[in-house]
Design a binder for these strands. Structure first.
Length: 589
RNA sequence: CGGGGCGUAGCUUAGCCUGGUAGAGCGCCUGGUUUGGGACCAGGAGGUCGAAGGUUCGAAUCCUUUCGCCCCGACCA
């Protein structure tokens, strides 16, 4: 039992100006966290309790799924990262640390980095520990503070520079077993998020710089989310928009025959799809080929999509490049001999084709058949451009961003798109990390063969999950904590703490509630009733029992659930047993 | 890193344009009256106006630089 006067819960009537979204405001107002710096937060006593509860649920579900907890350092030797496969891709988000020694020489490269994730550490660790197939099939995890130098921290704990993450890593002897581990973790994730009281969906996701096989994200639908999720209720299809595909190109599509010779025409001043779609040209965007240039791993390449489509940059990762950025105007002119607005990928019109590592066509341009594109000449476009006859493509692929309403790839029904917060992400990694000779994780199989372990990695944003719960479970008065993650389950609001009868009743109810499995907070402060009610609502304790002098005269106390409208009166004699039985019922459900 | 905005008491802010003693509400402290949904009265503490430099007799206010924070974009649990 905790007395309000003995702990520290600094609630605020007004929201600090720094907070923009409701869950961030409530984190601050309910006295859960305070900002120390950009993306850096202190967890106050109440916030620490929630964080611990979320962590503990996570731990229980991991253990139940057979994962094994360990703890690695957060300060990591930079050498070990440099030896890994993605140093260049991730070093920007890593904080660098140098030795504090006065004798240490300043260096360009850091001696240490603060861990943003631990594949580079656990792979060699396990690699050197485990060498037999008999020890394969293990999943290790830790719950630890992670550091990422986010370019733009946002929304409190939602995207912080320092945050608590559960990261897990599986090591299996073959693909099949690795997928079993993956599904075991997926099932554990489902249970974890459900126990946290979240409404969530798991979606197919882009594997990003993790590479490897396939991946799913755990998404909490919320307007303030950073991700778009594409889904179909009919078929159950769901995917991050970065990964999502649609059935817009029929599998049996027959490519159109040419309709005539290529024909150049003047388009003075026309540099956009929109202008070409208007008078006097009237060539709609879905009849235009749009040619865009990117640089992937310092190599220039082009992508052709329909004028009405957007390139989904994440999908360009399918092409094998790791670090991708849009090409500069100079780079574009150097290869194409023209500037954006006049670009096209017609055979023979590209000034220096050798500068292009590839020209890739989005599948959907096949729907155009014969269309219009730039002539790689100022103020000129070309019509009757036939996809198979005229475009200088190395290959086709899916590079476009799916739009709402397009047919689901499985059911054909219109797809929907919703905003969501990513709270978990699981990857089947394959052998990307384990196959390295001097560094990886290899084992001897029963045939005495040396093989790399097939890995998976599994992340949960623990502190982000805490905020996602608030974002999803609140009203105009404050937070409504789901039972399992509530900092306290029961608050006993003692309106007249000076009355001996009131405080002793509060203690009896509190003890019975504790025995029934609840964490109990007794509001014994010398405050007016209104303040206590407002605070109890604000910090979102699921169950409230009110004991006041007025009720005592009537012989009753009040029992109110935070997520219900009205309170119930319970006689003093029954109060202890009623509270205890309601708590038992809630705790077991 | 690009674009926009903001830094005045623990919190929310007025004052800045048009330079002249820094003001309010909440919170905090003292006393009193109150006591079932953020009470009231009286008294009080708390600010080198983000920092540095400049203009000026005089700068929160004008100029320059710088730091920090927030929002929009690319990235992520």
């Amino acid at each position: 039992m905790q007395y309000w006067s003995k702990t520290y819960i600094p609630t605020l009537k007004e929201s600090p100006a720094e907070a923009e979204i409701e869950s961030h405001k409530l984190l601050l107002r309910a006295g859960l966290v305070r900002k120390i710096g950009g993306g850096l937060y202190a967890f106050l006593p109440l916030g620490k309790r929630v964080l611990d509860k979320v962590s503990q649920i996570c731990r229980e579900e991991m253990n139940a799924a057979g994962a094994i907890e360990l703890l690695m350092p957060a300060v990591l030797p930079a050498e070990q990262w440099k030896a890994g496969p993605r140093w260049n891709a991730v070093r920007e988000v890593m904080y660098s640390v140098n030795s504090a020694s006065k004798n240490a020489k300043p260096t360009d490269d850091p001696q240490y980095v603060l861990g943003p994730t631990h594949e580079e550490i656990i792979t060699p660790l396990i690699g050197s520990e485990i060498s037999s197939y008999r020890d394969m099939g293990k999943i290790f995890y830790q719950i630890q503070t992670k550091f990422r130098n986010e370019i733009r921290p946002r929304y409190g704990l939602m995207r912080a520079r320092e945050f608590v993450m559960k990261d897990g890593y599986s090591f299996d002897e073959n693909d099949e077993k690795a997928e079993e581990s993956y599904h075991r973790m997926a099932a554990a994730y489902d249970k974890f998020f459900a126990r946290c009281g979240l409404t969530f969906i798991s979606v197919e996701a882009d594997a990003g710089i993790m590479g490897g096989g396939f991946s799913h994200e755990y998404m909490v639908p919320a307007e303030v989310g950073d991700d778009d999720v594409v889904y179909c209720q009919e078929s159950g299809y769901s995917a991050n928009v970065e990964k999502a595909t649609s059935g817009i190109v029929p599998e049996d599509l027959v490519d159109a025959e040419p309709v005539g010779e290529l024909e150049k025409f003047g388009t003075p001043g026309v540099k956009t799809i929109e202008k070409l779609a208007k008078d006097p040209f009237n060539i709609s965007a879905n009849e235009q080929f749009k040619t865009l240039l990117f640089v992937g791993d310092e190599k220039l390449f082009a992508v052709v999509v329909r004028g009405c489509d957007q390139v989904e940059e994440a999908k360009l990762g399918y092409l094998g490049y790791q670090v991708i950025r849009p090409a500069t105007v100079d780079e574009i002119f150097g290869a194409m001999g023209a500037y954006p607005g006049s670009l096209g990928a017609i055979k023979g019109t590209i000034k220096d084709r050798s500068k292009l590592d590839g020209v890739f066509g989005d599948d959907a341009i096949r729907l155009i058949g014969n269309g219009v594109t730039g002539a790689n000449e100022k103020a000129m476009h070309v019509k009757n451009v036939n996809v198979s006859r005229d475009l200088d493509l190395d290959r086709f692929g899916d590079f476009r961003k799916v739009k709402e309403g397009e047919p689901c790839p499985n059911s054909g029904k219109p797809l929907k798109i919703a905003r969501a917060i990513e709270v978990g992400h699981i990857f089947k990694l394959g052998t990307k990390f384990s196959e390295s000779d001097q560094w990886g994780a290899k084992f001897h199989d029963s045939e005495k063969q040396t093989k790399p372990a097939v890995m998976g990695c599994y992340g949960i944003g623990v502190s982000r999950t805490m905020q996602a719960v608030i974002e999803q479970s609140r009203d105009k008065f404050g937070i409504i904590w789901p039972w399992n993650v509530a900092p306290y389950h029961l608050v006993i609001t003692v309106l007249d703490p000076g009355l001996e009868e009131a405080s002793s009743l509060a203690n009896s109810i509190g003890e019975a509630a504790e025995a029934a499995g609840a964490d109990v907070l007794i509001d014994d402060r010398d405050e007016r009733p209104g303040v206590k009610f407002k605070d109890a609502d604000l910090i979102g304790i699921p169950l409230r029992v009110t004991i006041g002098g007025r009720g005592l005269k009537e012989g009753i106390v009040e029992l109110k659930w935070r997520n219900e409208e009205s309170a119930r009166k319970v006689s003093i004699e029954e109060a202890v047993s009623v509270v205890a039985s309601e708590i038992r019922e809630k705790a077991s459900s």
